[in-house]
Design a protein around this nucleic acid. Structure first.
Lengths: 195, 195, 195, 195
DNA sequence: GATGAATGAGGGTTCATTCAT
DNA sequence: TATGAATGAACCCTCATTCAT
């Protein structure tokens, strides 16, 4: 209850200001809690950051479920891309991911958390790719784990474009789908007009 | 002279701690300069950050020149990928890019700087892609600008992986080349064993 | 409680050094409080200055009450003069008034506070003068408000003499009383030996 | 030459900001001189302040000359009052006097300078008063030195009113003349409508 | 005589964190 | 559990002053 309330406030502040610039005072205010109370749930600002990051990373796995449920790789990809890169409710979370990666590059503890989540994500997406290799939609000689990593990386990179407000993203999102599909496709596809 | 000296010190500190956590005291110490002296060259810490970012972004254009000079798209790509993602001297700069993007997502002034640099980079890389479309190495119906954006995004995303120390990056870097080449290739290529 | 404690410390420091030369560190030390704590009561050094000034100005009104209670204008004047210009406990506050006026000449917000307090003071003293005009002690054709302003100004000016330690002030204080009385008297008084 | 130039710049800055808030950088800029150059003429900011104060105080003596030249005490008084309190070119200097007095209350060295100038001023004005006592315009039993001190003090106090922008000063200035004249007059004067 | 470059010392302010209640 | 009050340590920045040229 209180914990979630605080995490929600923290998320809002971290998005707006970044981990370092957001103060515990701001966070408690946003959460409607006293500063001292915050410290009863999280012994340190760093713990709060870490808890938030863990929460975020876990939710990434849900996306793989979506691709899985979609029936075709391409269709699942399209749905995910839409959600992650074009849904305003999620792009905010995406931007926070930049902060997380930046932080991970300096804080080994956070790097470990991110790495572990990445392992899970790559494993799940890799398994899915293998399935689509078996169904013939994806080329069989492609290394599934690497493909998974590259797809995730491309998403991350596109989120980076949101950060500086790059225009025409909608169009680019569609192009990204085709890009991935063509890179993995079992058979030569005519490039579609999106690209 | 002094300016460069300070920028060098700032770069080292920002890499190590991030823009917000690096103090002007640390930066001046690292640069071998007094704090007050730093302020004679940069009126504000933000100005220092901005100057550094501008410097970094400009240097990205050099990479396009490399791809251009390589003769074949694939070969140019391989050289660039090696340099950006595997050369220890450059990956550090790469990590700073995450910080830059995170900052851009909050600071419109910095977002503008990044956006402008991105425009230049995409234009240069796009022009190169058009050239390889004409030479038959890249599929003619692909939108060159979008392809450029996707390539840059993939690089950015892979840099994100460096942030949390993802293993086997060398292998992944090679896979990335193939991924891009296959996505853009004019003719169906047999996926190579890298992927 | 703490607020008063801080204001007391501030008053001492401001007297000793002036508004600008007194540091928040000194003030907190004098008040026996941490610097950070000071900032929980006054969001800014300027707020602290303003609060102190308001406090001081309000207390000036008490003096008018004294003149009122004295029964005769001359006697009331003598008591007030003694208090303001010769009582060591008050001359310190008086010196602070110079700082306040100097500050008011540059800071419109403080000027407004001083002006308002002056309006009150002049109104109160003016009303008293009217009373003594009716009782015949003060000449009836004198403009009471202007007279009030001039009396207050003379006090201010005499305080200025304290600032540079002008000698023989005791004697001068007595002379001031006669000066005022003679300027306002209804009938020609023989100048007394004080002047 | 240079010295005067610097003093002029300093005067402007001190007026605008006060002694402590005006920086040597600002002063040199205002004077069109480099900071280092300033230090060749004044070894310390305090020396600069002191020099300026001395310059200002000396000029006060000129005013006594005016009263002297006017022929009648009242007429001389009126001219002086006009000049000091109503001439925009001089009120600025007047405001600086508040700063000087405030500074004198803390800095004994400056207090000494002010005291000495005051002695001269009081002596000159006192001598003049004696002359008008002899001519019958001023009551013979009044202590001339004290009267001089009180007149100067009243001026100082009225300058204080300028600091907070008190309204209707023109009218008050006239009332001040009458106030002084009545306080010193040899014979009962009907209070004039100014008061 | 004149200046650009340099700096130690400090100034106001904020922050993460603690603790008594 | 919840909080208001408190603080040491830093942070960004500015200032008066010096010195090599």
């Amino acid at each position: 209850m209180r914990r979630e309330q605080i995490l929600r406030g923290a998320r809002a502040c971290f998005r707006r200001k970044g981990f370092h610039a957001a103060s515990t005072a701001e966070i408690s205010a946003e959460a409607g809690v006293s500063v001292a109370n915050l410290y009863q749930y999280f012994p340190t600002k760093d713990h709060l950051i870490k808890a938030l990051i863990e929460e975020d990373l876990t939710s990434d796995l849900d996306l793989v479920g979506m691709v899985e449920a979609a029936g075709s790789f391409r269709r699942g990809l399209e749905m995910t891309t839409q959600l992650v890169l074009a849904d305003p409710a999620m792009t905010d979370d995406g931007l926070l991911r930049l902060e997380v990666l930046a932080e991970a590059s300096r804080n080994p503890e956070i790097a470990a958390v991110v790495r572990e989540a990445d392992d899970h994500l790559v494993a799940a997406l890799g398994a899915l790719i293998v399935r689509y290799q078996n169904s013939g939609e994806i080329h069989p000689e492609i290394n599934a784990a690497d493909a998974a990593r590259l797809i995730v990386s491309l998403y991350d990179g596109l989120i980076g474009r949101l950060a500086f407000g790059a225009a025409a993203e909608t169009e680019l999102v569609a192009a990204a789908d085709s890009f991935i599909v063509r890179a993995l496709a079992a058979v030569r596809a005519v490039p579609d007009p999106d690209m």
